[in-house]
Design a binder for these strands. Sequence first.
DNA 1: CTGTTAACCTGAGTGC
DNA 2: TGCACTCAGGTTAACA
Length: 273
Amino acid sequence: MPELPEVEVICRGLRPHVVGRRIQEVVCGPKELRLAVPRNALQKQIAGATIMKLSRRAKYLLFDMDNGRRLLVHLGMTGRLGIFPAKAVQALHDHLIFRLDDGMEMRYNDTRRFGFVVVQERTGQENAPLAQLGPEPFWPEFSAEYLKKKAAGRLQPIKNFLMDSRVVVGIGNIYASEILFAAGILPTMPIGSLILDQWRTIITISRQVLTRAIEAGGTTISDYVNASGTPGYFQLELAVYGRAGDKCRKCRAIIEKQTIAGRASYFCPRCQK
DNA sequence: CTGTTAACCTGAGTGC
DNA sequence: TGCACTCAGGTTAACA
């Protein structure tokens, strides 16, 4: 489901509801997520602790507790986190319930169960799975020189490269297509052949597209909603994703769809070279 | 090392 | 209605 903009919107939406709240109890459903649910740690280390800070790194939500622990939540494809009154009827695929000390509950719902949660010690050093992540798109480390060096001599399509979290985090299948359209570069372009100026364009455009998507509340294709259950509206601004056969909004050529590394990719054959 | 495929899982949509 | 099939916002082990 969510890429960087959607996770960021959820993070901002949740923050006022959870920061300063004590988690009184964690209720785990019977099913496992992509990684086994750490029931023991949730009961012993998260229940009873107070959420001091909520932040985002890549597509992870980070709940920093007052007891030195950190709860890490990844939403996978269909994961949702929302705030509900304790008496609200539970939904199908609610897998985790965090009972807060103000009568509200934060519920983790995930139809396909590709998401997962991790409880870890909050140390100065990042532990797995955060340790291997590349820079955020908005960090200065995400530079043209960095990308050029990483890409040197390689034939990988630029779209896969942008979606590789070791290179840069947060860009998934929708925004990879959108960024490359806005940058005027074909998704199949081999990364080794890009020049510094093109990397500069990709960086600038990435930041623009992601920022605009956050402002629009994220992209809702089928079931993404923010923490309050409100959909995003960036899908109205999508230039190519899901628009195969439709006319390019810039040049009226027909948008094409091509599978690259097993993922649907969309582009305008006239605007992108 | 490089790059692609398949797998994890459920539900929605399509065509017959 | 029912059935078979395809596809979906992520990640990663296994493979060539």
